[in-house]
Computed example of a mutant assay.
Amino acid sequence: MQSSYNILLALSELFQGKNLPVDYVDGAPKGLQSEFIDTNTINNPNGYLQNGFGNVNIHLPKLTGDLHNGNRFKELTDIIIPLLDDVTQVTDNGTFHFQIYDDKGTFEDPDRDGMSYYNIRFEFQTL
């Protein structure tokens, strides 16, 4: 059995060395107002996770005029999406397979003034 934390750590390893903003595994500090990535799994009612879904949320400050930073979102999604596109990651804590489930797009960040985020939903399976 794998914990959701092991799944997120494997995902974080995929992002290392790829010139991405800081990745907060399962929650970023409250009030953070800079570029960052937040990853989480979606709760499984069975109490453990062997396969399921999660989110990669890319948070960015808005541009002047309250506009989303579309160019920067594109730069970052161009890096992240191939990392999650039918990829198997072997770690000390297990082997995990990731694939893109849905590209949700850009949203207002309700917890951070002047910020927006881009949501990518992924599917995972422990092997």
Rank of each mutant, 00 (worst) to 15 (best):
E75P: 09
R112N: 03
N119R: 12
I80V: 06
E123H: 11
L76G: 06
I42L: 04
L83V: 09
I120M: 13
D86C: 15
A10Y: 04
N119A: 12
L63G: 05
S4A: 15
D78N: 05
N51L: 00
T39I: 01
P82H: 01
P82G: 02
N6G: 07
E35A: 15
L63I: 04
S4E: 14
D23E: 07
Q50L: 11
I100R: 05
N46D: 11
H59D: 10
N69G: 06
L20Q: 06
V90L: 05
F122H: 06
Q2H: 09
K104F: 15
G105N: 03
D111F: 11
F15H: 07
D26A: 10
N44Q: 01
R112D: 01
D38E: 13
N69T: 07
N71R: 07
M115W: 02
F98I: 04
D26G: 07
D78I: 08
P21S: 01
G54C: 03
V90Y: 05
G94M: 12
N43G: 13
N119Q: 13
P45G: 06
Y48E: 03
V87P: 00
M115S: 03
G105S: 03
I80T: 06
Q125M: 14
E108I: 12
H68V: 14
N57F: 14
V25A: 00
Q16W: 06
S34H: 15
L9R: 14
S12G: 08
N51K: 00
D26K: 12
L84Y: 07
M1I: 13
T126I: 01
G70V: 10
N43W: 15
N51V: 00
N19D: 04
A28L: 02
D23I: 10
G54R: 06
S34Y: 15
L49Y: 10
Y48D: 03
T95M: 07
F96L: 08
H59R: 10
T88R: 04
T77W: 08
S3E: 11
Q125A: 14
Q16Y: 06
D109C: 10
Q99W: 12
Q2G: 10
K30Q: 14
I120T: 11
T88Y: 04
I120F: 14
I80W: 10
I81P: 11
Q89M: 15
I80F: 10
L84G: 05
G114M: 02
G65E: 01
Y101D: 12
L49M: 11
Q125F: 13
Y101I: 08
T126P: 02
F96E: 06
V22M: 15
L67Y: 07
P45C: 08
T106H: 11
I100Y: 08
V87F: 03
G114A: 03
E108Y: 13
I37Y: 02
N51M: 01
T95R: 07
I79Y: 05
H68R: 15
N43C: 12
S3M: 11
